[in-house]
Amino acid sequence: MKAFSLHTPLAESDLLPLQAGDQVLLTGRLYTARDTVHQRLAALLAKGLSPPFPLEGSVLYYCGPSPAPPGRVIGSAGPTTAGRMDPYTPALLAAGVRATIGKGPRSPAVHQAMAQYRAIYLAATGGTGALLAQTITEVLLVAYPELGPEAIYRLQVVDFPAIVAIDLAGRDLYREVRQLTVCGGTGC
C-alpha cells in the first residue's frame, strides 16, 4: 500500500497519481459538513448564492465532532456514513469540491459526478474519532452555530489518514470488495 501526502486546497493534478486503495495523509483544511449543512449548501447553490466558505479545491469531511474538553481543540472526530450526503453531493462537486471524506459506499450518481467533475472520495476509519482527533490542530466555527455538532467547522489537520475509495479513473474500492464477496455473487 502506497502512502501519498496531500495538501489542501487540492488541484486535479494532485489527484492524478492516486489509485483506489492508496493510503493518503492530508494536511491543510477540512470543512465538516453533515446532513443539514448539505441541504443548506445545495439550496444556496441552487439560488446562485455564495456558500460560507470557498468550495473550489476544498475537502469536505462528513463529521460531527464531540465537544472539545478543556485543554483540547476538539473531542472525538471520526467520519460518518457518506451515503446520506449522496443526494446533494453532485451539486457540491459541480461547485468545486475536490474530495470528500466519509465511510461506506457511494451511489452511482455520485460516482458519475466524481468522474465528471474530477473529484475523489476518501474513506476514513469509522469509530476511531479519538485517534483521528490527534491530527487536528485547530478548529474554527465557519457557519450555522445553531446546528451544534452539525455546524460547519474548519479543521486544520496534519497527516490526517484516509484510504482512496474512489479514484479519478473511477475505480471504487467498495465495488471491488463487493464483487469479491458472496453478496456480489448472489446479488443480495
Binding site: M1, G64, G75, T125, G129, A130, L131
Partner: peptide, 29 residues
C-alpha cells in the same frame, strides 16, 4: 486481509486512547 488488519489495529489503538485520555471512543455518542 492486510487492509483489514490495519483497520483493526487502528480501532484497537483508538479504543485504548479513548480509555487513557478519557475521550469518547466515537464522536457519535
Amino acid at each position: 486481509s492486510l487492509r483489514g488488519r490495519s483497520i483493526l489495529e487502528e480501532i484497537l489503538a483508538n479504543d485504548r486512547r479513548a480509555r487513557e485520555c478519557r475521550l469518547p471512543a466515537c464522536q457519535d455518542t
